Computed example of a mutant assay.
Amino acid sequence: MRFKDVFSIIGPAMVGPSSSHTAGAARIGRAARQVLGEFPGIAEVTFFGSFAATYQGHGTDRAIIGGLLDFATDDHRLPDSIELAEAGGMNISFRQGTGLFPHPNTVRLHLTGRDTGMELTLTGTSIGGGNIEIVDIDGFSVKLTGNYPTVLIHHMDYLGVLASVTDVMRRGEFNIGHMSLDRKNRSGAALTVLELDEPATEALTGELLGLPAVKSVSVVDLNRKPQEQEGKEETP
């Protein structure tokens, strides 16, 4: 990661001993919660590398679960996140993974939505200073930093789909800062990830969902305030 400023090393305002093992982990969990779009009834958490060796001592387990509850990195409830999640009906398991992994601080989450039964597998890395990279979503290779509002579009790999997506962005005056795309096979399922300069709106996601080849749209915005900080009660 290219050095930008001292805050890239110190990390964000946070609860916990480590910007990479705690703050970064919470941001990965929160990104996964937003991609899933609902409370996870089942959360299978597999740690790799340094995460696997030290996750209990550094509170990485509690940070990940706090993120799955949509807690920000400085939320005072993070130390109690596991108990709060289980009280809300989340079935949690932690594992230590082996084999190849993309970074020493890597976690793989397999989530099942409590209400819909929707499943999500997401792999994220904490690269220092609270910064993260989501590198895999349901077998698609992606790059999602969480630093900017992000739209994830599941679609079929048909001719002209990207042109239609970018045209929607142009007409809505949304500037694309970064794009990544992966597909299962030619003319098969694909995932496009767009990092934007401004938050996505319901009108934008609705228009994207109206495109013939688009199957689903989700939004990740780690900069938005959680419900409690907006004056609302957070309900697991």
Score class of each variant (00 low, 15 high):
K4R: 12
D5V: 00
S8W: 01
I9M: 08
G11M: 01
P12C: 04
M14Q: 15
M14K: 15
S19A: 15
A25K: 08
R27H: 08
I28N: 02
G29H: 09
G29A: 04
G29S: 06
A32M: 08
R33N: 06
V35S: 07
L36F: 11
F39D: 00
P40L: 07
A43T: 04
A43P: 02
E44V: 13
V45L: 03
G49N: 02
G49M: 03
S50Y: 04
A53I: 00
Y55V: 04
Y55C: 03
Q56L: 13
G57K: 11
G57F: 00
H58R: 05
H58I: 00
T60R: 11
T60H: 11
T60W: 15
R62S: 12
R62Q: 13
I64G: 09
I65Y: 09
D70I: 12
F71V: 05
A72D: 13
T73W: 01
T73Q: 05
D74E: 02
D75M: 12
L78G: 02
P79K: 06
P79L: 11
D80T: 06
S81R: 07
E83C: 02
E86A: 10
E86W: 02
A87G: 12
G88D: 03
N91D: 14
S93T: 15
S93A: 15
G97Y: 05
T98Y: 00
L100T: 12
H103D: 15
H103M: 03
N105H: 14
T106P: 10
R108N: 08
R108H: 07
H110P: 00
H110K: 08
H110W: 01
G113K: 05
D115S: 13
M118Q: 14
M118H: 14
E119K: 14
E119M: 09
L122W: 09
T123S: 08
T125A: 10
G128T: 03
G129Q: 03
I132E: 06
I132M: 06
E133Q: 11
E133Y: 07
V142M: 08
V142W: 01
L144G: 01
T145H: 08
P149Q: 11
P149T: 08
T150C: 06
L152I: 11
I153F: 04
H154L: 09
D157S: 10
D157K: 02
G160F: 10
A163H: 09
M169W: 12
R171P: 00
R171T: 07
R171I: 01
R171V: 04
G172S: 12
E173K: 14
N175P: 01
N175V: 06
H178D: 09
M179W: 06
L181A: 12
D182N: 13
T192V: 14
L194M: 11
L196H: 14
E202S: 13
L208R: 10
L208K: 08
L209V: 01
L209K: 13
L211F: 02
L211C: 07
S216D: 12
S218F: 01
S218C: 11
V219S: 02
V219R: 02
L222N: 09
K225P: 02
P226L: 04
Q227I: 03
E230G: 00
E230Q: 15
E230I: 04
E234L: 10
E234S: 14
